[in-house]
């Protein structure tokens, strides 16, 4: 479904991603793990067309989408839920969700609204609240729900548990679990290693801009040396 070939990326003269190749198959949940500054977010931004790569190719559904502008990807079935959330703060929850279905017709929007409300009942209660006045956890729910409004085939999440209470982290991962069971493909970037490895099928480990390791999450979880070396858990 998603394939990266030798992606490298730089900010000015500073190269932060070197030669990253990875693949996400249909229906899989895959994670990119690594420390702060390892280049994980940059990889996602390259896929989402927010950051132009210095080299390499991105294929989505067999189609070359390298350098395709961000606004075209929603219609193609790719949703990116960034760490910054990028919500519309002075709009209500309802308006944010409707904007999420910008490329869809009214019937689809209403159907999807019902769906995301079933996923996050709290958002239905907060329908008329301005997003700018919500807590971090609620905002993350809005961000995920807004991403799902476009019927994505692939959902990419950047640090969904960032700044959330343990309780809200659970709510978010429960929702992701449901998505998975329904067959949505998920690519997730996280620092929260243990929770993530329990959730995904496979993971890539990044360090200093390169993929240094990859494998089944089961194997990675048992690998002590890896946890110590790259994830700082003694």
């Amino acid at each position: 479904m998603l394939r990266l070939e030798n992606i490298s990326a730089a900010y000015g003269y500073l190269q932060v991603v070197w030669d990253v190749s990875l693949e996400v198959k249909k229906g899989e949940a895959v994670s990119i793990l690594g420390l702060n500054g390892a280049g994980k977010t940059t990889v996602l931004k390259v896929i989402a067309g927010i950051k132009e790569p210095k080299g390499g190719k991105v294929y989505f559904d067999g189609e070359d989408i390298t350098g395709v502008s961000t606004d075209k990807l929603a219609a193609k079935g790719l949703a990116f839920i960034p760490e910054e959330r990028n919500l519309f703060n002075a709009m209500t929850v309802y308006e944010n969700l409707v904007m999420g279905g910008y490329t869809k017709d009214k019937v689809t929007v209403n159907r999807n609204l019902e769906y995301v409300h079933s996923l996050f009942p709290r958002l239905k209660e907060r329908d008329k609240q301005l997003v700018g006045t919500m807590s971090g956890g609620e905002r993350q729910m809005v961000a995920i729900a807004r991403g799902l409004m476009s019927n994505p085939q692939l959902v990419m999440l950047d640090e969904p548990s960032m700044g959330l209470s343990p309780q809200n982290t659970l709510v978010v991962f429960d929702a992701l679990q449901k998505l998975r069971e329904e067959g949505t493909t998920i690519l997730i970037v996280e620092q929260n290693v243990n929770t993530t490895l329990q959730f995904v099928d496979r993971a890539y480990i990044m360090d200093q801009g390169r993929i240094v390791l990859s494998g089944d999450s089961e194997a990675l979880r048992k690998d002590d040396s890896i946890q110590k070396m790259y994830l700082g858990m003694g």
């Binding site: 961000t70 606004d71 949703a79 990028n86 002075a90 904007m99």
Partner: peptide
């Protein structure tokens, strides 16, 4: 009109939902 407001609040977010800036 909503899309215009959305861009004023967060241009990246607007692009993510498919708005052509």
């Amino acid at each position: 009109g909503r899309a215009i407001r959305a861009v004023s609040m967060d241009a990246t977010g607007a692009q993510l939902v498919g708005i052509k800036l």
